[in-house]
Nucleic acid binder design. Structure first.
Lengths: 337, 337
DNA sequence: ATTTGACGACCTCCGCCGGAC
DNA sequence: TGTCCGGCGGAGGTCGTCAAA
C-alpha cells in the first residue's frame, strides 16, 4: 500500500494525495475528505525510509544503553523515551554489552538513522578526543554521568549528572554526624574509573575531613553492582569479625542486599548497623526499615537530558553540563550512636 | 557522507562500493581493500531509509509498550530488546499512555517502519476482530498477557503469558495449607478485565475450593498498581479492625508496600500476618523477611516471545499461545498458623 | 571468467507548468 | 485574477540488473 495506490483508489493524482497528507492549500474540501477517508480506511502510513530521503528528519534522537540488567537504567529508559516523544522527536534505541564500544554504536545508529543527537546511558568516563571524533558532529550527551576521567573538552559534549563524589561525601557525613566512625563501604570497585570510584573518593574525603583514618579492611569490593555480590561481600565482612557501626553503600540495591546479610547474621537494623546509600529506588522507600538515601531526580534528569540535547540541536545554545541536586530521603536505616 | 562520496574518494563507481559493502564476489582484492579502508576512515554507514526502499526489510520487529511506570515492564523492555537483537532483527519501540490505543500505535509503527511483526506489552485483554483488522496481516504477539476477555480467534494472534488465575490460586492455596482462612487480597481492581481481575478470580476459586466464605471486607482495591495505593489501602484495612491472618497481593511491589503498612502498624512479619504475591521482582528476594512469591520467568518469557513471533514471520509454524510456568520462591513472609 | 560501470527502481515530496473553472 | 487539480521531473541513498570492458 503506497501513496500511488491511494491515489488510484481515490481517482486523483499522487500529487493531490501528497498535498492532502502535508496539509497544503489548494485542495478542495471535497477531494480532501475523500482522500482522507481512503487513507483512514486503508490505514495508510507513508514509508519512513522514503520520507527520510526527501525530508531529512530534523527530529530524531538515539539512545545508546550500555550494560543492561541495571535497575536504575531500566527505570530511566522509558522515562527518556517519554521525554523524547513528548518533545516531538522520533526515538531510536540500541543496547550494547558492557564490553562493546558505545561511541561506535552511537555513530552507527546516528548514520543509519540520520540522527540529530545521541544520548549515552551507561557509557565510559574516560573518552578521548580521537574516540569521539567517530561521531563527526552529531552532538552527544552523557546521561547520569559525565566524562570525569577523560580528556575531552567540555565544549565538545553535554552531560546531565549528579555530583557523585559530593553525594557520597554527604552520605558519609550524615553517618559521622550521627556518631559513627567505623564506617564500612560497599562498592563495585575503588578504581573502575566510573561511578563506583567517584563515590568511593567521596567516602575517602568525608573520612579525611573528619579525621577518621581510612581502613581498607572496611572496604567491601564486589566487582560488580549486583545484589548477590553485595550480600556475599557483607556476609564475609561480618564473618571476618571486623567491627563497624555503619555502612555506606554506593547504590540502593547494594544497600538492600547488605541489610539482608546483616539481618541474616542476627544484626538488628538500624541499632547494630546503620545503612545509607545513593540512588533513591522507589521500592527502598517501602522496605523495613525504610532506607535512608540520597535520591537522584531521575525524571528531572531525563527531561533535562532531552532539553539539553535539543538546545544543541536547535542551536539555541551550546554544550552544557548540568549537575542535578540529590535530595536526602530520610528513612529509618540510620541510628544515632 | 553517502556511498557516492565514498565512491568518488576511492575513484570507483557506486556499484563497486555497494558490492564491497554487501560482500559480493567479483571485486578485486585491491579495490576491495581500498574501499574498505576509506569506509573505515570515514565511518561510513549506509542510510537505513534508502536501504529499506530497495531491500524491503525482512527483519524488523516493533515493541509497543502501553502504560509506563511499571517495574515489571521496565525490566522486560531491555530483555526483549536483547532477545530481538540477538536474533538478528532490528528493533523499534513506541511507548504510549494507558489511555491510548495500542493497536493503532502498532499499526502506525508497523507501516512506517515496514515491520514484520509487533510485540504488545501491557495491552488490553479484550480485543475485537474489528480492532485488530487495522494491523492488516502484520502478526502480533501479546507478551505477559493474552486476550482473556476478548473475542478474537486464537488463530489470529500469538501470546506468551503465565496462567494468572492458577498462580493466584496456588498462592492462596499455599496460605490455606499453612492454616490461614482469613485471607485479605490487595489488588488494583476486581473488574478491570485485566491481570488484576484474573488474579482476583484465582483468589475466589481458591477460597471456594477450600470452603472459605468470600468476604468483600477483606478486599483491598487500590484502583491502580502503585505502592502508595497498596500502602494506604492496607493501612485503612488495619484501622478498620478487620481481622485477617494473611494477605495475598497481586504483585510483588504491592506486597512490599502492604508489608510496610503492617509493620508501621506494629505488626510482626510474618507472625502477625503472612504475605504472598506473584511476580518475583529481584529486590524482594532481599527484603526482610524475604517475600514468598510466585516468580514469572521474565527472561524466558522475553525469549519465547521473540521466538514465537519469528516462527510466524518465518512461516515455520502458525500462531501459538505459550503458557509459562511460574515457580514458587519460598521466602520468610509466610508463617504456619 | 572476472571485473567494473551505468542505469533504473524503490517511495515520497516538492516545484513547476499547463489547464480548467 | 484568482482557485483548484493533474502531470511531469528531479532528488534523496542504495542495490540489483544489464551491458561492457
Amino acid at each position: 500500500m503506497t501513496i500511488k495506490d491511494i491515489a488510484a483508489k481515490c481517482g486523483v493524482s499522487v500529487s493531490t494525495v501528497s498535498r492532502v497528507m502535508n496539509n497544503h492549500p489548494y485542495v478542495s474540501k471535497e477531494i480532501r475528505e475523500r482522500v482522507l477517508k481512503v487513507i483512514a480506511e486503508e490505514h495508510f502510513v507513508p514509508h519512513d525510509g522514503a520520507v527520510d530521503l526527501v525530508k531529512p528528519r530534523t527530529d530524531s534522537i538515539g539512545l545508546i544503553v550500555r550494560g543492561t540488567r541495571n535497575e536504575f537504567f531500566n527505570d530511566m529508559i522509558p522515562t527518556l523515551e517519554s521525554a523524547i516523544n513528548d518533545s516531538g522527536y522520533a526515538f531510536y534505541m540500541s543496547q550494547i554489552h558492557t564490553s562493546e564500544d558505545e561511541l561506535r554504536a552511537a555513530a552507527t545508529l546516528a548514520k543509519s538513522k540520520a540522527l540529530k543527537g545521541v544520548i549515552l546511558l551507561g557509557g565510559r568516563y574516560d573518552y578521548t578526543p580521537e574516540e569521539t571524533a567517530i561521531l563527526d558532529n552529531v552532538p552527544f550527551i552523557c546521561c547520569t554521568f559525565t566524562n570525569s576521567f577523560g580528556k575531552i573538552s567540555k565544549e565538545s559534549f553535554s552531560s546531565v549528572s549528579i555530583d557523585d563524589g559530593r553525594a557520597a561525601e554527604a552520605a558519609v557525613q550524615l553517618l559521622v554526624d550521627n556518631g559513627h566512625r567505623e564506617i564500612a563501604i560497599v562498592l563495585a570497585s575503588a578504581s573502575d574509573r566510573s561511578i563506583s570510584e567517584l563515590r568511593y573518593l567521596g567516602y575517602r574525603r568525608a573520612l579525611e575531613k573528619n579525621n577518621i583514618p581510612y581502613d581498607e579492611n572496611l572496604v567491601i569490593e564486589t566487582g560488580d553492582f549486583s545484589m548477590e555480590g553485595a550480600y556475599e561481600g557483607m556476609k564475609k565482612m561480618i564473618e571476618s569479625g571486623k567491627k563497624f557501626t555503619a555502612t555506606f553503600a554506593i547504590s540502593d540495591s547494594m544497600a538492600v542486599a547488605s541489610m539482608k546479610a546483616l539481618s541474616d547474621a542476627g544484626k538488628k537494623l538500624p541499632e547494630d548497623c546503620s545503612v545509607i546509600a545513593i540512588d533513591g529506588v522507589k521500592m527502598t522507600e517501602y522496605i523495613i526499615p525504610t532506607l535512608t538515601t540520597f535520591v537522584q531526580p531521575r525524571e528531572a534528569m531525563a527531561k533535562q537530558t532531552v532539553e539539553s540535547l535539543r538546545e544543541i540541536i536547535e542551536k539555541k545554545s551550546g554544550y552544557s553540563h548540568v549537575v542535578m541536586k540529590t535530595t536526602l530521603r530520610e528513612g529509618g536505616s540510620v541510628a544515632k550512636l
